[in-house]
Computed example of a mutant assay.
Amino acid sequence: MTASSLSPIPLAAVGALRFGHWTDVEAGTGCTVIVAPHGATGAVDVRGGAPASRETDLLKPENTVQEVHAICLSGGSAYGLEAASGVARELEARGIGLDVGVACVPIVCSSCIFDLAFGSATVRPGVDAGISATRAALDSDPDIPLAEGCVGAGTGATVGKLNGPDRAMKSGLGARAFKLGGLRMGAIAVVNACGDIVDPATGHTIAGMRAAPDSLQLDNMEDAMLAAGAQMEMPLDRTNTTISCLVTNARLTKAEATKVAQMAADAYAHVIRPTHTTNDGDTIYVLATGELEGPTPPLDLIGLVATRTLEAALVAGATEATALHDLPAARDLI
């Protein structure tokens, strides 16, 4: 990613969007909300085999709902979907949503990661957490950068779990944004992958499966899978998911936004190894505000910018994390 192509910008500079967290560090869980107060074209791409989600069918191009008002990324496994109800309540109270004549109905889509194996298995983001995250998004100073690492939905995120939780590593939430001409693109990624995290710019593994519970040396998880052969087992079955939201000022239809989400899924393959497994519920949302002035760039170019932006956010999800609940983070490695 060169300075002559993509230029870094603050996430808040992408468009008319707001961002907020609710975090419980002790329990190792949280939620993150992306609010589109004026609505945005939404889309989703689901590649993993074990997703936990809400209202994703509304984002299919053939469905008639055209605007989304918030995306809620949450911990708590499927229990965390309850946080989206809190988001909807707070948006309704502020008059943000779809006017159906007799009521205001916010369109809130949500996906969750499994974080119950680290911290507390009984504390999950609920309605109050969704309300708090939404208030943080709408009432905080938008010029303050969104916190990254072990915050919000990334609080309980972990990676490198083939050989059990005691050889995993801590990861978290990453957020990055770039511009190319008038096009602006941002990404928020909650990195809770089964696999290792590789920086595609260098090819180096930056977080993943450790050689031993007391080790800060990394093993290559894909090599370990091949070596195990038919005896390979997954001790944390269906407990991994990387969930992301791309935000852009581009003018996109639902079908075009869906294609951007599909193209951006390449970022998962570039950074997470292996990815899209039966134990991951990998999901990517897109919110397009349509604020771009001038001609819209070619769709394939928008998809490429989305992919590069999401790569940066995924890497940041590992590099911005800190040690928590006896698990080291990338910054702790030798």
Rank of each mutant, 00 (worst) to 15 (best):
M232A: 15
N240R: 07
V159K: 00
E222K: 13
A177E: 03
G160E: 04
L218R: 10
A157G: 01
G181F: 07
G208Q: 05
L246Q: 10
R210H: 09
S215V: 11
I206W: 02
A175K: 05
A250S: 11
G203S: 06
D237V: 14
L180P: 03
M232F: 12
M185Y: 05
N192C: 05
P213E: 09
M185P: 01
H204P: 00
K254A: 00
A189R: 05
R251G: 05
P235E: 09
N240Q: 11
G149W: 00
L236M: 15
L226M: 12
D214C: 07
G149N: 01
L162V: 02
D196N: 08
R238Y: 12
T239G: 11
T202E: 09
T248N: 03
L216E: 09
S244W: 05
N240H: 12
C245K: 01
I243R: 04
M225E: 11
L180M: 14
K179F: 03
C194R: 07
I206Y: 06
G182M: 07
L162R: 02
L236C: 13
T202D: 05
T155Y: 01
K259V: 09
I243A: 03
F178T: 03
M234H: 13
A250K: 05
E256C: 01
L246D: 06
K254E: 04
K161N: 02
R167Y: 00
A250I: 07
L180I: 05
E222V: 15
R176W: 07
G195E: 05
G229R: 12
A157R: 01
M232E: 15
P235T: 10
A230H: 14
E233C: 11
L216T: 11
N220T: 13
L216K: 09
M263N: 10
V247P: 04
A227F: 12
D196R: 04
D166K: 10
G186Q: 07
N249C: 10
G182K: 04
A211E: 15
V198W: 08
F178D: 00
A224T: 12
D219M: 10
A230D: 15
A261F: 00
A255E: 13
V191Y: 02
G208L: 06
V190W: 01
V191L: 10
L216C: 09
G182P: 06
A230N: 13
M209D: 05
V151K: 01
G160D: 03
N240Y: 10
T205E: 10
Q217W: 13
Q217S: 15
A168W: 01
V198Q: 10
P200H: 06
D223T: 14
A207H: 11
L180E: 13
C150M: 00
A227W: 11
R167W: 00
C245P: 02
T202Q: 09
R251M: 03
Q231M: 11
T205N: 06
R238S: 12
A193S: 14
T253M: 03
H204V: 15
A175C: 06
G195K: 02
L226D: 14
D196C: 03
A177G: 06
A153K: 01
S215M: 12
